[in-house]
Write a protein that binds this DNA or RNA. Structure first.
Lengths: 351, 351
DNA sequence: CTGAAAGCGCTTACAG
DNA sequence: CTGAAAGCGCTTACAG
């Protein structure tokens, strides 16, 4: 038949009621084994797939999760992070037959509006919040709406929204220890957007680690994760009178742009300059020299976030303790590659 | 109220029937101006958003479009192409309040199954087909299902599925003319996966253009769009006895990996080697030297595809001529940057 | 174990 | 211009 089959069609063919078909299809008690098998056989033969809208309307659930991305198309495209995250999310959702609804938004206001609409429409059962900011208004917003949510990034305090996050201070310390051991004493850092929480957290981690190691100078300049800014800031750092001998970048795209600038200015790596990318991606292995990076499992990060969200959704409005659900993912670790080496005119670390 | 408001709530508050509320909300005739305004005011005040599932069930439409991506998480993440495409699609869909449902699949079989399920569930009203292959089974599949679809890539012949595509031969010719003029006579090409239609089309375009220009040698080796393959094949090409003086890559990721290998082998660009990336992305501007590339508007490509799909969906099952809907997008054009220059031991083009 | 019925929240002919 | 009602395709108490 050209019309897609419904449970009514199956019921008619099997000579039972629609209710019986529903029970059989959902593996519930209430139908005999023989009837169940007959119904399932007919359903399979007809190529029956239950109508989502009807089911959603009945059970008051969308069987879908939403994610709104507030980044320009260009940043999204070039940054491997998002697709890796999304594919991790996907894995967890597919396992529970949940769909993923994606929307790209241009502003915070638009994003808030999307959440209101999605939730009002019951288009989603919950949302994943990306790029958590300092004093992020979205946390309160979703809480007020009653919209289940999980924040990716953090840690966030005093919120009812569970958070999936990575510790930033230990990997930061690991990277700086490493550079220190290589003899570097003047360090530059090209940071991310200061409004993002994870940038702020790294700022702090970087500061305290630098103080502990007693570097001669540490200069952080914030960028916006784009290659343009990465290049501009690198050019700036490398033309300072007391230029750094090593630079740490808050994302891979800026690191690669920085590498380009280093080449352009005639620096040879790692002889004249060491570069570390904070967040590893296949991009870091494509360059020459390959970039030393702080690696973490972004895919797993996405899966974990999605799993927690599903748990909250399933638990329903029964109060779930967000603190109990907040999860710290395996932390980043240093993956040394060819872009880092001894500092020029090395002051040996051991001496 | 904590419960999300329905038209029944509005009807009660306004003292009218649910039908009247529906007419008012949807801007249909059947309610007086005064009543309409009163209803709208109440709806706004209550923060009413219509339940998608209920509407979908009534109008038998999902108000959503699906896209299944059959690439590994790694390729998806690193390739700017997909996010740019998706963001273009998004723009067109948002304008019509359509949602985008995304799924990552591991195999063709899985992908076909997803289409069957989406369509059966009425989760989507149509799908966008990416990475169109040679003899692509999906085209017949969606046609058999009756699932509205638009293929991205092509051109595809003898199908009822409209296609949004780019001409490949003219840009190919443009790139080769340019390299010829720079004195290059031995050309290498690192292609994409041969099973993809656009790779096959480029193979052919490349062949005929090379014949016309009478290059000394042209070597195409197919890769899989990953950096690993791009690097491996580049290493192979550059260590051939009669190595090419210029290499064209079928995507930016392989081109960047190729650049890395060139650096590693001590080639200086563009003095010793010229590199062209087919498909431009911000990545091409990050490297040093920046990569000459064949640029095209991927974002616009996505929007166009989505717009056509919406047109088909709206037109319903009334036969639409796919040929009339197939669209050729503005073609790629050469953007020369610093990675291309005169061939070593140049045979001047003019002489 | 099974059937008949109500209900989810909309839309839309059909009467008044 | 308005109201009452049926219907979209499911799920799920409630009787038998």
């Amino acid at each position: 038949m050209s019309r897609r089959p419904t449970i009514a069609d199956i019921a008619e063919a099997a000579g039972v009621s629609k209710g019986a078909v529903s029970y059989a299809l959902n593996g519930r008690p209430g139908v005999s084994k023989a009837t169940r098998e007959k119904i399932l056989a007919i359903a399979t033969e007809m190529g029956f797939v239950p109508n989502r809208a009807a089911r959603s309307l009945s059970v008051a659930s969308a069987q879908a999760v939403g994610i709104a991305l507030r980044r320009s198309a260009r940043t999204l495209g070039i940054e491997p992070f998002f697709m890796e995250l999304i594919s991790g999310i996907e894995v967890a959702l597919s396992a529970e037959s949940y769909g993923l609804t994606l929307q790209i938004v241009g502003s915070l206001e638009e994003e808030l509006e999307v959440y209101r609409r999605w939730w009002g429409e019951r288009r989603v059962d919950g949302v994943l919040l990306c790029d958590v900011g300092v004093d992020d208004r979205r946390l309160e917003w979703v809480a007020d709406l009653g919209l289940p949510a999980v924040a990716i990034g953090g840690p966030v305090e005093n919120t009812s929204v569970p958070t999936v996050w990575n510790d930033q201070s230990e990997p930061c310390r690991e990277a700086l220890d490493y550079l220190f051991a290589l003899g570097h004493r003047r360090i530059g850092r090209v940071g991310g957007m200061p409004r993002l929480l994870h940038t702020a957290v790294r700022d702090e981690a970087f500061d305290s680690a630098s103080v502990a190691l007693n570097f001669k100078s540490v200069t952080t300049i914030h960028g916006d994760f784009t290659g343009e800014q990465g290049a501009r800031i690198t050019r700036r750092l490398l033309t300072l009178p007391e230029r750094p001998t090593a630079i740490v970048y808050d994302n891979d795209v800026m690191a690669i742009a920085g590498l380009g600038v280093a080449h352009e200015l005639g620096f040879e790596l790692p002889r004249d300059l060491s570069i570390v990318s904070w967040d590893d991606s296949p991009l870091c292995r494509l360059t020459h020299p390959a970039l030393t990076a702080l690696s973490r499992d972004i895919h797993g990060h996405g899966s974990t976030a999605a799993e927690i969200l599903l748990r909250i959704i399933t638990a329903g409005s029964t109060a779930v303790d967000p603190a109990a659900l907040s999860v710290q993912c395996p932390q980043s670790h240093l993956t040394p590659r060819a872009s880092t080496g001894s500092a020029p005119e090395s002051v040996s670390a051991g001496s």
